[in-house]
Amino acid sequence: MSSSDEEGSGEEYLFKIVIIGDSAVGKSNLLSRYARNEFNAHSKATIGVEFQTQSMEIDGKEVKAQIWDTAGQERFRAVTSAYYRGAVGALIVYDITRKTTFESVGRWLDELKTHSDTTLAMMLVGNKCDLEDIRAVSVEDGRSLAEAEGLFFMETSALDSTNVIKAFELVIQEIYNNVSRKVLNSDTYKAELSVNRVSLVNNGADGSKKTQGYFSCCSG
């Protein structure tokens, strides 16, 4: 079944990613936009968990992302937090038109830290950036929270597709980088990763990383 018969070129990767954030910020539509290029303005509230997979190619290798979309209402964390285990990437989503969803980001990060068992590639996602008229969270606020927490940051619109693929692919790429580093230098893996994150936060010494990390659809 796997392509181990083809030496070297046929490597496969499978990464588990979770999408979390308050209710009605657009998690399910981000996922359906990414996995099926679909958007449903009248989608139902997610009950429990949903699941999609999507593949991309990195360095000639097939990388498959197994993405879990979770119910946002607080009450459901009792059953959804089980899905954080084994995740190597996370998108923490808020709605740029609702400040409360941005204020919850810290709690979602705590949840992740409590329940996940490995280092995660994490991205803060400000969704619904097509709704500029009723924006309630500035790009700057999003970006500085991401910097303070050592997260990637992007504003997206599942409605008009802005940055959706970029956001997912960046997370997947980062996971891939983490894993490659891990393979190359497994002893110092964690230390190195955290060093990386700090430099990303403080002074952006790693310039290429920084420009790669931040996208916003709405700031000039």
């Binding site: 209710s23 009605a24 009248h42 989608s43 139902k44 509230a45 209402q73």
Partner: peptide, 13 residues
């Protein structure tokens, strides 16, 4: 507010 947010997401069709 939570209820209002879900109203249009209940049997939307």
């Amino acid at each position: 507010l939570d209820i209002i947010r879900d109203i249009s997401r209940t049997f939307p069709s």
